[in-house]
């Protein structure tokens, strides 16, 4: 592979016309049953019947809207458009996140962010972003392919230490930091949301495996499921 070639920066072109991408509201009416990746684990029943106290608490934040946003930090029209719609800057500092109410944005890569917001708001946000942003950008709805787990409690960190080789110590992983890393034999986007709270964004097809893994890794501390 040639990496000697200097990337040639091209001037941002005018706002793309709508037809250049296929926009699609992928949500059905609320009368249609939607199943999160952990639907079959029936966490609601586990929460009702399972232990109410333990060292680790697990909750699925299901059926949220997940949008991948791609764009160059050199593209002013991209950054400005994002700011205009989100009301705050995209977190351009590596491994940081930003949030406002129910909407949160995670830095994934220098040209990639993951926005999570209530599922029913995702399509509207995508439209507004596309309208506001110019130049070479991409927005991809991945809501069906991911889910959010929240791991909390005094032993949550101990479970993380079994699961990821990433350093989850306070000195390296303060509240607000976000990393994409290895999680068991899968991967996760991990964001620290509180002193004892950690958010894991995981892929749908791995959800059953990770649910098994988390039950096993938490067993010695007592696992509480929250609905």
């Amino acid at each position: 592979m040639s990496d000697i070639i200097a990337p040639t920066k091209q001037a941002a072109v005018e706002a793309a016309s709508v037809e250049t991408v296929a926009l699609m509201d992928q949500l059905a009416g609320t009368d249609i049953r939607a199943e999160s990746p952990l639907y079959h684990a029936d966490l609601a029943t586990v929460a009702k019947q399972g232990p109410k106290a333990g060292g680790v608490t697990l909750q699925e934040h299901k059926l949220l809207g997940h949008l991948v946003i791609r764009g160059s930090q050199d593209n002013a029209g991209f950054l400005a458009g994002a700011r205009a719609v989100l009301g705050f800057d995209l977190p351009t500092q590596p491994l940081t996140a930003a949030e406002d109410g129910t909407l949160s944005v995670r830095w994934i890569a220098p040209d990639e962010w993951l926005v999570i917001l209530p599922g029913r708001e995702a399509f509207e946000l995508e439209n507004r972003l596309r309208e506001a942003m110019s130049g070479h950008v991409a927005i991809v709805n991945v809501s069906g392919g991911q889910t959010v787990l929240e791991l909390s409690g005094p032993n949550a960190r101990a479970v993380l230490k079994k699961s990821t080789p990433y350093d989850v110590h306070d000195r390296n992983f303060p509240v607000g930091k976000v990393v994409t890393t290895v999680f068991a034999k899968s991967q996760a986007v991990i964001r620290r949301t509180g002193e004892q709270n950690w958010e894991l964004v995981i892929r749908r097809s791995f959800a059953d495996y990770l649910w098994l893994w988390l039950q096993d890794a938490s067993a010695e501390f007592g696992l509480v499921i929250k609905d």
């Binding site: 592979m1 040639s2 990496d3 000697i4 070639i5 590596p94 491994l95 890569a109 220098p110 080789p165 990433y166 990393v179 890393t181 290895v182």
Partner: peptide
């Protein structure tokens, strides 16, 4: 160099010799 910190080898794939110009 993109994330700005050290990570474990498990997160990486080696892709062979660099600077091979197509």
């Amino acid at each position: 160099p993109h994330c700005g910190e050290h990570r474990e080898e498990e997160e990486f794939h080696a892709k062979g010799q660099a600077h091979l110009a197509r």
